[in-house]
Each structure stands twice: as C-alpha cells, then as structure tokens.
C-alpha cells in the first residue's frame, strides 16, 4: 500500500489549527490564513531542540535521584528521603499499591522517556525502516504518560504544607525535588519538540525545513 504524504502533494497542514494549506514555493515564510501561525513542513529545528532538552534532562536525572527530595524532622527522628527511599517507606508501611504507582510515575516513566526518545531520535536520523508503526505508538505513549512523573513533586508540596507543627514535626523539600521537577519539564519539552513525522520520512529534502 502506498501512501501520499502532504509533502508529496504540496500541502502544508497547520500544526496549530489543523487547516490544510497549499505549499506555495514562492512564499518564503508562509503563515496559516486562519490562525496566523507560521507554517512548517516539519516542526522547526525539531531534532536539535529535542536533543538539547533530552541531554539536559538526562544530566539532571542524576541529582534528582541522588539528592534527598524531602527532609522529615520529628522529635523522635530526623530523616532524609530520596525518591527511591520514599517508595521503600511506602512499601514497608504496607501500601504496596501506592508504592507501585509512585515507582511507575517517578522511576519508570522518566527512564522510559529518556531511553525511548533517544531511540526515536537516533533511528529517525538513520531513516531506519525498523518497526515504524511500533515507534509511532511509542511516541504517542510518551506524550500520554509525560505529565505523570510530576506526581512526586505534588506529594512533596502537600507534605510540606501539611506537616508543619513547629519543632514537633516538620517536612522540608530537598534539592532533589527541584532537580526532579526540572527533569519532568525538560522531558516533556523534549518529547513535544520531537516531530513524529521524521519516523516516516525517506527523502532528506523534507526534513530540512
């Protein structure tokens, strides 16, 4: 089965409002007549921006997991928890279901996003024909799960405000939480910058603009 793409047919779909416009070579910087957004054949500077966000996210992922995201201070004990430590505490207290949710949201999702985007970027750079449909599905999965890694950030914010009984018990956010928040935002920006149409592109001429 052969497919006709918009680039083949000289069509230019607007990313913002979905309007399908004609690609007129004479116009140097075309704009959507309906929503005035600039029209691009592929997302502007997609690969470079995606790599930049991805590398920044991967680097920050190290302090996000090594540094504590939370200090708990009570009369009896003084505890610092990393993300993994927090999951262990949940598990030991018997709420294995929540431990599983936090484990998936804070550990699996960020790793999945970083690894999967690397695979997508490298394979589309090589114009690989390997498992294109699967890779397209992987990208849609990334877009869907992206925001769920924010879970731990919200937990910390709530604990900080709730557990505030001066000197008896207090919770403070740690530097790991800031790094982790940045990782979530950066991985979301990285997957938004990636253009899934690059998975299918065969001719190098399309991806240049």
């Amino acid at each position: 089965m052969t497919f006709r793409t918009a680039s083949d047919m000289g069509l230019l779909p607007c990313e913002a409002c979905g309007l399908v416009c004609r690609d007129e070579a004479s116009v140097s910087a075309p704009c959507c007549p309906r929503c005035e957004a600039p029209l691009h054949r592929r997302k502007h500077d997609s690969v470079r921006r995606s790599w930049a966000f991805l590398i920044a996210a991967a680097l920050l992922y190290i302090p996000a997991n090594a540094l504590p995201i939370m200090h708990t201070q009570t009369l009896l004990y003084n505890q610092q928890n990393t993300i993994l430590g927090g999951i262990r505490v949940l598990w030991q207290e018997g709420s294995w279901d929540l431990a599983l949710i936090v484990f998936i949201a804070s550990i699996c999702v960020p790793i999945l996003k970083i690894v999967a985007l690397t695979v997508l970027l490298i394979s589309s750079r090589r114009q690989s024909r390997w498992a294109r449909r699967g890779r397209a599905r992987l990208y849609r999965l990334l877009e869907f799960v992206g925001q769920w890694s924010m879970l731990d950030i919200f937990v910390v914010a709530l604990l900080v405000s709730l557990v505030d009984f001066h000197t008896v018990a207090e919770v403070h956010a740690g530097p790991g939480a800031v790094a982790f928040g940045a990782v979530v935002v950066l991985t979301m920006l990285a997957s938004m910058s990636f253009d899934p149409r690059l998975i299918w592109d065969e001719s190098p001429t399309v991806s240049t603009s």
């Binding site: 950030i153 914010a157 405000s161 956010a173």
Partner: peptide, 29 residues
Amino acid sequence: MHGVENHSTLLGAIGAAWNTGVGSIAVLA
C-alpha cells in the same frame, strides 16, 4: 497531631512550598 489541627488547601500547599525556599516547585504547582 497531639490536638493541633492543620488544614491544607491547594493554594496553601503552594504557598507553603514557596515559603520553605523551594520556589521553583511552588511556581510549577
């Protein structure tokens, strides 16, 4: 906790995160 009660609203949580010096998390939330 020991007879002291703490209520937390959404904006209260955000404000508390801001006050404890993790401004970026407060802004994000």
